[in-house]
């Protein structure tokens, strides 16, 4: 498999009047086509910042972020982005939100939108407005909106963080389904260890102050994975240990 995303020597510093914070320090990472990579780490480790750099939403950094060998300079449709909140347009209904700026009148757009509505299992809700949807449904609409643009990489920034445990598990299944059907490369940022092990074939463990990659843990379990399986628990423990290693250096009262 060929590398679709490569991050070379990326560093980033946030400046304000009085101080500057080193957010990312000399990051190196390669993601292959069709990979499902999760990035996990304590809050403040710069994992969301990293995702913004890949998306081109933030270009103030040193080093290089390349997608298919080309430098990322601005946001584009081949880098789909799912935010923590669904960020749907409240004045558009479900199909309108998925199409966004594309005309639903066009048969090819119509056809793709209908396919995606089936893929994210929202049949019957085509005409519903965001205010009538639950959090999980809204996030599925957001995923469909990104997928309509046939992204080379789908970047997800803690997409299920605000959802309850049941909805989250359901959406994780849905996302795996989509990944297996479409083979879209996924990079998902999370703070949920189970989510990381359940979804990805590679977990990037990050450390804070300054943000850097501490460990890369491959997950070679076959899909669908059982959260209760021994192999699953072994990897989970392994992952937890690599995270704890950092936390032991911190005073016990920080969360």
């Amino acid at each position: 498999m060929s590398a679709i995303l490569s991050i070379t020597d990326v560093s980033k510093t946030f400046h304000n009047e009085t101080s500057s914070t080193h957010v990312l320090s000399r990051l190196n990472l390669t993601v292959n086509e069709g990979d499902f990579v999760t990035v996990i780490g304590p809050s403040g480790c710069g994992k969301s910042t990293l995702l913004k750099l890949i998306a081109g939403l933030d270009t103030d950094y040193t080093g290089a972020v390349n997608i298919e060998g080309k430098k990322v300079e601005r946001p584009s449709q081949d880098k789909g982005f799912i935010f923590q909140e669904h960020r749907l347009f409240p004045w558009l209904n479900v199909e309108g939100n998925i199409a966004a700026d594309l005309p639903l009148r066009k048969p090819e757009v119509r056809k793709r939108v209908d396919e995606l509505i089936r893929l994210v299992k929202l049949e019957g809700f085509e005409k519903a407005y965001p205010r009538q949807l639950s959090g999980g449904m809204s996030q599925r609409v957001a995923i469909a909106r990104a997928l309509l643009r046939n992204p080379k990489v789908l970047l997800l920034d803690e997409p299920f963080g605000a959802l309850d445990a049941f909805t989250r598990a359901h959406l994780q299944d849905a996302l795996l389904d989509i990944w297996q059907t479409n083979r879209t490369t996924m990079v998902l940022v999370t703070h949920d260890i189970d989510e990381a092990v359940f979804l990805s074939n590679r977990v990037i463990v990050m450390d804070a102050r300054p943000g850097r990659i501490k460990a890369v843990i491959p997950v070679d379990l076959p899909y669908p994975r059982r959260r209760t399986g021994t192999a699953f628990q072994d990897i989970r423990t392994h992952l937890l240990r690599s995270l704890e290693h950092h936390e032991s250096e911190e005073p016990s009262y920080t969360i």
Binding site: L57, P75, F83, E85, R87, D101
Partner: peptide, 16 residues
Amino acid sequence: RKLFEVARVLEFSQLR
């Protein structure tokens, strides 16, 4: 402001 970020990701033209 967050919706403008979405518009950037979806590559809306100025007019759109």
